[in-house]
Simulated scan of single mutants.
Amino acid sequence: MAGNRDRFSTATRLRLLGEQTAARVYRSQSRRQDQRSRLTGRAAFLALIVCTLVLALAYPMRQYVSQRNEIAEQERLAREARLRVEELRDEKARLQDDAYIQRLAREHLHYLLPGETGYTVIDPGAAEQEREEQGAADRPWYSNVLEGVDNADRPAG
């Protein structure tokens, strides 16, 4: 019987040892899962903070970029305005010169100096076109429209 008891004790001891080992393994796994849960929670919190910061900075950054573009556009307009002012000052200085004024009057207004003879040359094509326009006024409007459509199909020549 003593052998039975030793065997029973050994079997009991082995069973207890197995249970203790299983309990240690279970505790170890549950600790690891707790750590993973905490780590996942930390990661989620960190991701939330990062997203919040991105959202908080997105609008001011968009405003900043928009204002930089607007400033660049205004600077470009100011440069163009300065160039236009310089051109106008040059033109004003030229208009102070009597010879320049005289040249403009001769070119654009066809003025002549005393003793000069002016000639006007009429372009034959322009005279013909003028006659056609006068003839078009005598016809009904729909004839002019149809003629315009027909002329649009003809090659220029």
Results as ranks from 00 to 15, higher is better:
47 A>F: 03
40 T>L: 05
73 E>S: 09
5 R>E: 15
102 Q>I: 08
24 R>Y: 12
42 R>A: 12
102 Q>T: 14
49 I>T: 02
39 L>G: 11
22 A>V: 01
13 R>D: 12
141 W>V: 15
134 Q>H: 09
156 A>E: 11
69 N>F: 09
37 S>C: 03
2 A>D: 13
34 D>K: 10
110 H>M: 06
34 D>E: 15
91 E>F: 12
38 R>W: 00
88 L>T: 07
135 G>N: 08
25 V>K: 06
101 I>K: 02
152 A>K: 03
7 R>I: 14
84 R>Y: 02
28 S>I: 11
104 L>E: 10
2 A>E: 14
43 A>D: 09
16 L>I: 11
137 A>G: 01
126 A>N: 05
59 Y>D: 10
102 Q>R: 12
1 M>Q: 13
51 C>H: 07
110 H>F: 11
143 S>I: 11
20 Q>N: 05
150 D>C: 05
116 E>A: 01
85 V>R: 09
94 R>I: 07
11 A>F: 04
106 R>C: 07
114 P>I: 05
120 T>E: 08
31 R>N: 10
26 Y>E: 15
137 A>I: 02
48 L>A: 05
47 A>K: 08
152 A>S: 11
16 L>H: 01
125 G>E: 12
135 G>Y: 01
18 G>E: 15
57 L>A: 14
60 P>Y: 01
97 D>S: 02
129 Q>H: 08
144 N>K: 05
69 N>R: 09
57 L>Y: 08
27 R>S: 11
136 A>Q: 10
94 R>C: 02
88 L>Q: 10
143 S>A: 12
58 A>M: 08
125 G>W: 09
145 V>K: 04
155 P>N: 03
12 T>K: 07
31 R>V: 13
116 E>D: 04
33 Q>S: 15
87 E>N: 03
139 R>A: 11
128 E>F: 06
127 A>T: 06
34 D>A: 13
83 L>Q: 06
89 R>G: 03
104 L>S: 02
145 V>D: 09
148 G>F: 07
64 Y>D: 14
80 E>R: 01
129 Q>P: 02
74 Q>F: 08
150 D>I: 13
18 G>Q: 10
49 I>Y: 01
93 A>R: 08
131 R>H: 03
1 M>V: 14
153 D>P: 00
61 M>K: 02
140 P>D: 05
153 D>W: 00
36 R>C: 03
150 D>P: 04
91 E>T: 15
80 E>C: 00
90 D>I: 13
116 E>M: 00
110 H>A: 13
21 T>K: 05
79 R>C: 02
106 R>M: 14
96 Q>R: 09
115 G>N: 04
17 L>E: 15
50 V>T: 08
113 L>Q: 08
55 L>N: 10
48 L>H: 03
125 G>I: 05
94 R>W: 14
124 P>D: 00
126 A>Q: 10
120 T>S: 06
131 R>T: 05
99 A>M: 03
111 Y>G: 07
93 A>E: 13
48 L>T: 06
56 A>P: 01
143 S>N: 09
23 A>F: 08
3 G>T: 12
9 S>P: 08
95 L>T: 01
130 E>T: 06
97 D>C: 01
111 Y>F: 14
155 P>E: 09
126 A>D: 06
137 A>F: 03
154 R>W: 09
134 Q>E: 15
54 V>D: 12
5 R>T: 14
117 T>G: 01
1 M>K: 10
71 I>V: 15
45 F>E: 11
